[in-house]
Structure formats: C-alpha cells, structure tokens
Design a protein around this nucleic acid. Structure first.
Lengths: 192, 192
DNA sequence: ACTCTAGCGGAGGCACACCTCCGCTTCAAC
DNA sequence: GTTGAAGCGGAGGTGTGCCTCCGCTAGAGT
C-alpha cells in the first residue's frame, strides 16, 4: 500500500534545476530555509536564507520567486516524510499505530507551525499536502475506530487539529507536552 | 472572595495620565491597539495604531515607550476581565463552573494569542497576570478535582495550556472547535 | 484672564527587508 | 578547446516601520 496518492514532493521536485551547480544551490537554499524558518519563524529574512546557503540573493529569487514558493517547497518535503512514516507503522496494533504516527506528527507540527500559518489554504500545493497527509494518516484512525479503540463521533480532521493545537503551544518541558497530549488522547478513547 | 491577590490592571492603570486630554488619548490608544492587534497580529504597525487612535505617533511613544509596554497594557486589561468572570461562576456546580470559565478563557486566548506570544515570560507584568489568572481559575479546578469530577494526576497549568493550545488553532468553524474541546475535556474527566 | 508647563503632532533620520537588473562566471554540448 | 546560454551574485532602488526631537497647543492652577 502506498499511503499517498502521489508524493507531494514530486510536484515541487520538478522545479529543481538540471545543471549541476544550480541543483546544488537549490538544495542548499532549501536546507537553509528549513533551518532559518525553524529558528526565526516564518518571517525570517530571505537575505539571511541566501546568506546561510552561501549563495547570492539573486539566486534565491531565481529559484523561488516569492516567499511562498520557498514555504511550499520546504513544507512539501516535510509532508512527504510524514507520509512515509504512516506506512512504517501500519503493521502495529491499531491504537499503537495511530498514536505512533501522531507522535511523529507532533514533531512535524512543532517545527512547521510557522510555515503552515503563512501558507493560508489558497495554495494548490498546500491542498495537495493536506490530501496526501490525510490519505496517509486517515486509515490508521479509521482502523482504530473500527477496532473500538477510538470514539466514533469525531473525524480524523478533528483529531489532527486537536493534536496540532496542543503541540503548537509552549510547555514548560517535553514531559508536560506529553502529559497533556495523553490526557487529550484519553478523551479520544473515552467513549469505549 | 476576591479571586485575584491584586487587580493586574491597577499596575498598568497607574500609568494613565492625569490631564483630561492626555487621559482621553491614552484610552484611545489602548482601544486602537486592541483592535489593531486583533486584526493584524502582534506585528501591527505602531504608526497604524496611532492613526486609528487619531493621535500623533509621538503621543503613542510618550505613553508606551516600547511595543512591549503597549502589549502589557492591553493584555493586563484582558486578564483582569477574565478574573472577574471566575468570581461570577463560582457558585455553580464544580464541573460546570470550571468549564464555564474555560469557555470564557477560550475567547480570551483566541484574540490574545499574538500578544501572549510576543510577551515572552520575562515581563514582570506578564508574571503578575499569570499569577492573577491562576488565582482566579485554579480554585475552580481544585474544587472539581475534590468533587471527583476532574482527574487528579494533572495540574491546572496542564489544563490551561491544553485549552489554550486547542483554541489557538484554526478550525473549520466554531462547531468543530467546540467538539474538539469537548473531546479533550472528556480526557480530563476520564479517570472518574 | 494669565501663565506656565504638560502634552501634542508629525517631519525626518535610521535601519532593514524586498526585489530587480545586468555584467561576470561556469557548465556542458559539440 | 570553443562557445553559447544557463546561472551567478550583489549593488542599489524602493518601500516601510521605528523612534527622536522640537516648535506649537491647550489644560490647570492662581
């Protein structure tokens, strides 16, 4: 089973230039952007991204004409990773599989929150990512519902937003984040 | 019972100028800032705030030397309101009182998220607000715990962060937000 | 009414990010 | 090796927000 209908990253990868030096710069820019956004949030300066990547600002703009292009590319890569994890956990117990994936989803949300906010839902690529992610995680949730492990009166979308919300806030430490997440997930099981 | 040890707003109110016109400007600025922050987030331009208030930029800076001062003042006002609500609901059933207050807390978080993020925990006033708010809501939670309505293995801080997190994310509509919040609150009751 | 001082407004200097443009460099096809 | 074009970089124009400073205004005390 391939969890996603099509790998989102391919949509973006098609933009990767062919010439050797250009491709290297493209990759460096993506890596630098990932780093810069994680560190300074979505409003990190593009000039800074170029500097980190060791390329001129002109090169950045040639590859990513707008800030949005950069967001999309970074974001799509992350989503693609996440989809792969869904396949990896698919053979575990229903509830365990679901929560394992959700834990991974947490890491994803924590670092990528800023980007997701900036990418308001108009973007085509954003929609593709969304679809892709739901295709990957949704079955895990449905399986847990059918097994009577997860309550039936909520949707996968409800669940994801809940987890995303909880993990997006600041906590005193990781232990508290886990504790709170567990409490909320108990709510998801509560109707057993 | 006075829920808070001291009304936070007083700390800030002491900065309100005495002369009639000056006081009017001060109030206009606060209102304008509330509006601008709600609309454009924490990075709203201060020039825009002054314009909305119908005063010169110089007047803004005289009253609030830094962006942080403005944040603090707006924020403190909100917190103060919230504390008053805790008193109002105190005579209801333990669980009902708690959730009623939390619903109000939601409104507060939704609009004030941006400010709270910008106000990282160094600020003196932020700490006072925090204390004030905990003094107001904490007893509601403890009462629910003692009544066996809320699980005993989490803290009030855990609860608040959970609710804050959930309500800070975007939902399709208010119905979804409520649904998700209910699920999470079920988790808080789960150990009954 | 008079004064004197707290308060006002906004022009303007500074800093910084965005984005364009074009002369130079480097790849890769032949 | 030659050559043409794809790609490079960063100087510099533009816009925007921050904050200061100072001549003017109007409230408050007498």
């Amino acid at each position: 089973m391939t969890a996603q209908p099509f790998p989102v990253s391919e949509i973006v990868a098609s933009r990767r230039p062919h010439r050797k030096d250009a491709a290297r710069n493209y990759d460096a820019l993506l890596a630098a952007a990932r780093e810069a956004f994680a560190e300074s949030g979505a409003e990190a300066s593009l000039e800074d991204v170029a500097r980190r990547a060791g390329v001129g600002i002109g090169t950045l703009y040639r590859n990513f004409p707008t800030r949005r292009h950069l967001f999309e590319s970074v974001y799509a890569g992350e989503v693609d990773d996440l989809c792969k994890v869904a396949e990896e956990v698919a053979d575990r117990e229903p509830w365990t599989a679901l929560t394992s994936w959700l834990r991974r989803f947490v890491d994803y949300t924590v670092t990528k929150r800023a980007i997701r906010e900036a990418l308001n839902d108009e973007s085509e690529i954003f929609l593709a990512c969304r679809e892709s992610m739901y295709a990957a995680g949704g079955p895990l949730f449905e399986r847990a519902q059918k097994a009577g492990e997860a309550r039936a009166d909520i949707t996968f979308d409800d669940l994801l937003r809940m987890v995303a919300g909880i993990t997006a806030t600041n906590f005193l430490d990781d232990a508290q984040r886990d504790r709170v997440l567990s409490v909320a997930l108990d709510g998801v099981r509560a109707s057993r």
